[in-house]
Design a binder for these strands. Sequence first.
DNA 1: TAGTGACT
DNA 2: TTGA
Length: 213
Amino acid sequence: MNHNILGEGTRYYPEYWGSEAQNAFLETLQEGLQQAPFFVPRMPRTNQPWSIRMSNLGPLGWVSDKSGYRYQPTHPETSAPWPQIPQMLIDLWRDVSGCPADPECCLVNYYDKPKAKMGLHQDRDEQAFEAPVVSLSLGDSAVFRMGGPKRRGPTQSMKLHNGDVFVFGGAARLHYHGLDRILYGSSQALAAYPAFAEGGRLNLTLRRVSPIA
DNA sequence: TAGTGACT
DNA sequence: TTGA
């Protein structure tokens, strides 16, 4: 029996965006990040820093620090509101999410170092599990791992590449997932942008946070 | 630049 | 414990 990572509730759109769309978006993202600079998230309680850098766009941003995980309307270091979610991402959400309500958060994870990764976890801080999580990959390819509803249990890995969109909703909405590692230097897509001069991988995840009326 | 992948 |  060959249980497939692309099971019920997940959808994979290889190279959803070509280079023209990517470049238009990266330009906009770079501007947004001037108002919401990357910060280093930390583990609750231990305060241990993560290997990635993070920012957000939209009315709500997801943050993790010593006091826990939460969504909040402002940047944790500057206290400024997060920049707007670019229209290109709203359009992407409307195209692939199947959700009648627009996203409220775009979490921007920047895997900027060769060793950057993220352990297996659930996205469960939202109040609208009927809306999917929509993930866009830009830059270096990465080894993504998808599991099931419990932390222990079978997992499967797949590569995500520059421009790919991965959607997990339905039965997969609360499934464990993580990022084993990036294939550092595998893409030049970020090279022209000073904000992403280190290269690496950007992952943008669109989420609905509050209940859908 | 493999692929693996559960336990504390 | 979205880490080690």
